[in-house]
């Protein structure tokens, strides 16, 4: 079933970025499962040669070939592809010039490495170009080959430059074939077919980078989607308890009696618990401040919990369900 009729939004390409260490590959994978739910076909792409997708889904390293990595609730499928610029260049040569054979001869000489190095924007145009090719690809019956494409993109610090291939290339070539290719890529990226999500943690630096990233994307006319707040931990203490902690008015005797009841009462443990309570309270306050800054950005915020046992396939489905119940995929 290759249709996206039940999806009111036109978005086909979901680009996922985020500061290093925030878990953007995990979020991209969970988003792909979520989008595949109820019979959709989704392609999850990575472009940085890290084989992060293969590790997450616990499959062999991905070749330059679309591979089915997971099924989704209700009969959907997640396919995955690791794109490298050399393969993407060969595709490009074939598509536009029927020159794949010449291209692979050049590859053996190291010339493609050279070409993608010589033109800084070329690499990015080829990588984003591949994503656009998949987005536009049709089956024989004219249905879209994939209902959605999720791109695990470079980190926030580089995302605008990565997506803004037009200006990257125009610095190099004002006219010519690569410029027109960039133009056609851009016409999809800067359109309602595309949205860029940013993944963050509730810490100062990632939040600042997210806000800067949003401003940067907007300034360049790129479509910003949702903010995914990852690794959220629910507060263990309620607001009143945290207030007491902050004011150093927590009742020690209360804790003492509790520990007594379970035979663990010791001054050392009480001291530890009180220190940890303070630490926790500071952390929760900091997170609340950072969350407020994100809310001020007026974007849909998706909250993803820390999965204590770590990320495995089961955890991806858990996160996917949370995304499905959020507004992102509605």
């Amino acid at each position: 079933m290759h249709s996206n009729q039940d999806s009111p939004s036109e978005v086909v390409l979901h680009v996922v970025s985020g500061k290093g260490g925030t878990g953007k590959t995990t979020v991209a994978a969970a988003l792909a499962i979520s989008l595949a739910t109820n019979g959709h076909r989704v392609l999850l792409m990575e472009v940085e040669g890290r084989q992060g997708i293969a590790q997450l889904f616990d499959v062999a390293p991905l070749a330059y070939e679309e591979t089915k990595v997971a099924v989704a609730p209700g009969g959907g499928e997640v396919w995955a592809l690791a794109v490298d610029s050399e393969d993407a260049l060969l595709d490009y040569l074939e598509m536009f010039y029927k020159m794949r054979r010449a291209g692979s001869a050049l590859g053996k000489m190291g010339a493609i490495e050279f070409a993608t190095t010589i033109a800084p924007g070329l690499r990015d145009v080829l990588l984003t170009g591949k994503a656009i090719e998949v987005v536009k690809r049709k089956e024989k019956n004219a249905a879209n080959a994939y209902d959605f494409v999720v791109l695990d993109a470079p980190p926030t610090g580089r995302i605008t430059r990565f997506l803004n291939v037009n200006s990257e290339v125009s610095g190099l070539a004002k006219v010519g074939p690569i410029k027109s290719h960039a133009d056609s890529v851009m016409s999809v990226i800067a359109s309602p077919l595309t949205t860029v999500h940013l993944v963050t943690l509730l810490e100062e630096m990632p939040v600042q980078e997210t806000l800067d990233g949003i401003a940067d994307l907007e300034a360049n006319g790129l479509p910003v989607g949702s903010i995914f707040v990852n690794l959220m931990r629910p507060p263990k203490l309620d607001a009143n308890q945290r207030k007491a902690v902050a004011e150093h008015s927590l009742s020690t005797s209360d804790i003492e009696r509790g520990l007594e009841a379970v035979g663990l009462n010791s001054p050392e443990l009480i001291a530890s618990l009180e220190r940890e309570a303070l630490d926790h309270t500071q952390r929760v306050d900091l997170e609340a401040r950072e969350l407020q800054r994100l809310e001020d950005a007026q974007r849909t915020i998706v909250r993803l919990p820390l999965i204590p046992a770590g990320i495995d396939l089961g955890a991806l489905y858990e996160l996917a369900e949370i995304i499905t119940n959020s507004e992102v995929t509605k």
Binding site: K236, L237, Q241, L250, S251, D254, I255, R257, G258, L259, A261, V262, G263, L264, L269, S272, L273, E276, A277, H280, P308
Partner: peptide, 25 residues
């Protein structure tokens, strides 16, 4: 286990929370 016992007893919720926090760490 101690945190669970306190939770089950319905008493000493603060201590139970602190113990859970401790165990988590």
């Amino acid at each position: 286990a101690a945190a669970q016992r306190l939770r089950a007893s319905g008493e000493f919720e603060l201590t139970a929370s602190l113990l859970e926090l401790h165990a988590q760490r």
